[in-house]
């Protein structure tokens, strides 16, 4: 089991961002973490990544509690830029290679090359869309056990979205799992095989995508709209 959350709760000054989250994720899945804004998706991801500490409950990644061991197994892509723009891309690659044993620089250079991104340039010289792609490439160049992608396709043009989804698919590893949080469901639902619906900090549904489609005769996008109708 790659990820196990038991009765995970996170409260901010009495406000429960997440309540009693119990979740198990096995190897080889691409899972969509879906929910409206404020449902706790980013909070859950940050808890797993080790950027927040739970108010109660446990998290274990391949049996490890959150710490340096779990962080070496997790490749995390936040929903905003987090790399120093003043650094050159190749220096950032060197940095990742230094700290993460499972980082594969050749893969990164290969993906950058296909997009004609010059690794000798500083990150800040690139357009927003290109920066997004660089961030994604770095995250996907690791042979991690768990990939946490927080809104990887929001704020990006449709062609770039396709590229991002293709990259996620082409780097798929049956020994790893990918957890993608998003609210752009129709773009992404075909690459998911499981979904978790998060509503007001609680898990509403955790199911296989095709089973849901069979039961409800709806797309996940339609189902989402129905469940989270305002």
């Amino acid at each position: 089991m790659i990820l196990e959350c038991k009765d995970l709760t996170k409260t901010y000054h009495g406000f429960p961002a997440l309540s009693d989250i119990s979740l198990q994720i096995d190897e080889g899945h691409i899972i969509g973490l879906l929910g409206p804004n404020g449902s706790g998706k980013t909070t859950l991801i940050k808890l797993i990544a080790g950027l927040l500490s739970p108010s109660s409950g446990t998290i274990s990644i391949e049996g490890n509690p959150v710490g340096p061991a779990s962080k070496s197994l997790i490749s995390y892509l936040p929903d905003h830029f987090y790399l120093d723009g003043h650094r050159k891309v190749k220096d950032i690659i060197g940095f990742f290679h230094d700290f993460y044993r499972d980082f594969e620089p050749l893969r990164a250079y290969d993906m950058l090359g296909k997009l004609n991104i010059d690794p000798n340039q500083k990150l800040k010289t690139f357009s927003k869309g290109t920066k997004e792609k660089v961030h994604l490439i770095l995250a996907m160049s690791r042979r991690a056990k768990l990939y946490l992608l927080d809104e990887p396709i929001a704020g990006v043009d449709p062609a770039a979205r396709d590229y991002i989804l293709q990259t996620i698919l082409s780097n798929y590893d049956e020994n790893a799992s990918i957890l993608i949080s998003t609210h752009l469901i129709s773009d992404i639902e075909n690459i998911l095989d499981q979904v978790v619906f998060l509503h007001k900090g609680r898990i509403h549904t955790h199911a296989c995508v095709d089973e849901l489609r069979q039961e409800t005769h709806k797309s996940i996008d339609d189902l989402f709209r129905e469940v989270f109708k305002c």
Binding site: I30, D162, L169, N190, V209, D210
Partner: peptide, 17 residues
């Protein structure tokens, strides 16, 4: 399976199924 899944832009598990 991988190639087909990528071509169709679907989850490899779905293609496998």
């Amino acid at each position: 399976v991988r190639e087909l899944a990528q071509e169709a832009s679907v989850n490899p598990n779905t293609m496998q199924k």
